[in-house]
Amino acid sequence: MNSRKEQLAAFNRLLDIMDELREQCPWDKKQTLESLRHLTIEETYELADAILDNDLQEIKKELGDVLLHIVFYAKIGSEKKAFDIADVANSISDKLIDRHPHIYGDVIVENEEEVKRNWEQLKLKEGKESVLEGVPKSLPAVVKASRIQEKVAGVGFDWEVPQQVWEKVQEELSELNEEIKAGNKENTEKEFGDVLFSMINYARFIGVNPENALEKTNKKFINRFQYLEKAAKKEGKQLADMSLTEMDVYWEESKKFFR
Rank of each mutant, 00 (worst) to 15 (best):
E160P: 00
L124Q: 09
S91G: 15
Q170W: 04
P140Y: 07
A145H: 01
R224Q: 11
E235N: 10
Q163W: 10
V131Q: 00
W159P: 00
Q163K: 14
K137N: 10
Y250G: 01
A50E: 06
N184F: 02
G77V: 06
L33F: 15
I222S: 05
I92W: 13
M1V: 10
K256S: 13
L139P: 03
K255H: 10
T217M: 10
A48N: 04
V135Y: 06
H38L: 11
V109M: 08
N111S: 13
E215V: 04
Q164F: 07
E113D: 14
L239F: 07
M199G: 02
Y104N: 10
A182W: 03
Q7I: 15
E211R: 05
G134Y: 05
P101K: 04
R259W: 09
V109K: 02
S130N: 15
V249P: 02
F258H: 10
G105M: 07
V115H: 00
A9D: 14
A231F: 06
K219F: 05
F11I: 10
K75N: 05
N12F: 09
L244R: 04
F72Y: 04
R37N: 12
E186I: 15
E46C: 06
E215P: 00
V155C: 07
V142P: 01
E43G: 01
R37K: 15
I200G: 01
K255T: 12
A10N: 06
L228R: 04
I17F: 09
F11E: 01
E79P: 03
K190G: 00
E179M: 12
F221C: 11
K116H: 09
S78I: 02
Y45F: 11
L176Y: 04
E186L: 13
K168N: 06
I180D: 02
K123N: 11
E133S: 09
E133F: 02
G207R: 08
A145M: 14
I97K: 15
R99W: 07
I148N: 01
I76W: 02
E215H: 03
W251K: 07
E114D: 14
G156W: 11
L47H: 03
V135T: 11
F157Q: 13
K237M: 14
W119K: 07
Q164V: 05
L214Y: 07
D106I: 03
F225L: 15
Y45Q: 10
I59K: 03
L214A: 06
D106S: 13
V208T: 15
D28V: 08
E171V: 07
T32D: 08
F257D: 13
I108S: 12
E23Q: 11
V169C: 13
E150T: 05
H102T: 04
C25A: 14
T44Y: 06
Y104L: 03
S146W: 01
G207V: 06
N209Y: 02
A82R: 12
D194C: 01
V115E: 11
A74T: 02
L173P: 00
G105S: 08
V71D: 01
E175I: 06
Q57P: 02
I103P: 01
H69D: 05
D106K: 13
E129K: 11
E129H: 08
T44A: 12
D65C: 03
I92E: 13
V152L: 08
E229Y: 13
L67Q: 07
P101N: 04
Y104Q: 05
K233H: 12
G105P: 02
